[in-house]
């Protein structure tokens, strides 16, 4: 038996804590550098751009920091009815889209909660709308809803007896007659909200299902012993357990939907009353070549989210503390 006491070769000097601190900084620095260079600095620069009158043609010879700062972009925006309309549409789209996704996700999660034959396959299939490329699913729905060759309108006119095909994605206002009462509906906006709910419900489904699996079985058993019906179990046992995760999903989905560009751009191009702030940023940048105005709209979006997030954090930090 040889008891060789190998002396650890340590090139680094200093105490263990100092060595860890140095190693930690070294290892995390590539991440931090990428995020600072590609996210933090661009955001700060966008802030500067939003206070300048800059067009795309001028960028080749412009100064990085710019020269003349003015509030004119913001001034013009808040006087523009297009911008105010886009704020309203964005809020409707993100609130109703978030609500739709969570409602569908919650129902789906409750449905597949208990084991049944083929459950794994059903669960996998239900995630498809969320993982499939947004370009593909947007075009599938564009074809499905098309007035000329779409399946939905074919069924509507042949089976359901509609008078004429409905141009779902290009009709700004339609009329629905229910029980003799007719009222106007923003057709295209409802369609993009519906699309958003369909595309994103798997996200809510996945997280709610994961949380449901962790609800202790004894609670439910006890309630059942006391004669609680399924809806009572849901209302008084499951829902309180799910409240936290639903609130979190609501915040995340609201942020994602508020920022969403692809879905609306691909479905309607922002036409027919569906122009949201994100598509407005894009059209300012590319169609009107107005870098300053597009940056101002984008900064406004970031500011709205920052305020909402602060409110949420404050509200929740205070509610969670006693627990």
């Amino acid at each position: 038996m040889t008891a060789v006491q190998a002396k650890p070769k340590r090139r680094a000097r200093g105490t263990r804590a100092q060595r860890d601190a140095r190693a930690g900084l070294a290892l995390v620095s590539p991440t931090v550098i990428v995020v600072v260079v590609m996210v933090v600095l661009p955001v700060l620069w966008a802030l500067l751009l939003s206070f300048q009158r800059i067009r795309l043609i001028q960028i080749r010879r412009m100064d990085i920091l710019g020269s003349e700062y003015t509030l004119r972009n913001y001034d013009l925006l808040f006087g523009s009815s297009d911008f105010l309309a886009a704020i309203r549409v964005t809020l409707m789209y993100s609130v109703l889209g978030t609500f739709g996704a969570i409602a569908l996700g919650l129902i789906a999660a409750l449905l597949v909660r208990r084991p049944f034959k083929g459950r794994a396959a059903v669960r996998g299939v239900m995630l498809l709308p969320y993982v499939a490329p947004v370009v593909a699913i947007a075009f599938i729905w564009r074809v499905l809803l098309s007035p000329q060759l779409g399946f939905v309108n074919a069924v509507g006119t042949d089976v359901l007896g509609w008078d004429s095909p409905i141009p779902f994605l290009s009709q700004e206002r339609g009329e629905i007659t229910l029980f003799g009462l007719s009222f106007g509906v923003p057709t295209a906006l409802l369609m993009v909200i519906f699309f958003e709910s369909w595309k994103s419900f798997p996200f809510a489904f996945l997280f709610i299902l994961a949380r449901l699996q962790a609800v202790p079985g004894e609670l439910e058993e006890a309630a059942k012993m006391d004669g609680a019906t399924p809806t009572q179990v849901f209302r008084h046992i499951l829902l309180p357990q799910l409240a936290g995760v639903i609130a979190l999903i609501a915040v995340l989905r609201f942020i994602f939907t508020f920022n969403a560009f692809d879905e609306i751009y691909l479905l309607t191009g922002g036409g027919a009353g569906t122009e949201v702030l994100a598509t407005q940023v894009y059209s300012f940048l590319t169609a009107r070549n107005d870098v300053g105005a597009s940056a101002a709209v984008a900064m406004f979006m970031a500011a709205v989210l920052a305020v909402l997030l602060l409110v949420y954090l404050k509200f929740f930090a205070e509610r969670d503390r006693p627990a």
């Binding site: 995020v35 751009l49 942020i255 920022n259 560009f261 940048l285 979006m301 970031a302 989210l305």
Partner: peptide, 17 residues
């Protein structure tokens, strides 16, 4: 911050740069 800022906001300065 990456998730708070809309991709479209980052797109402007990156596009310009």
């Amino acid at each position: 911050s990456v998730y708070l800022f809309p991709a479209i906001l980052l797109a402007i300065p990156l596009f310009v740069a």
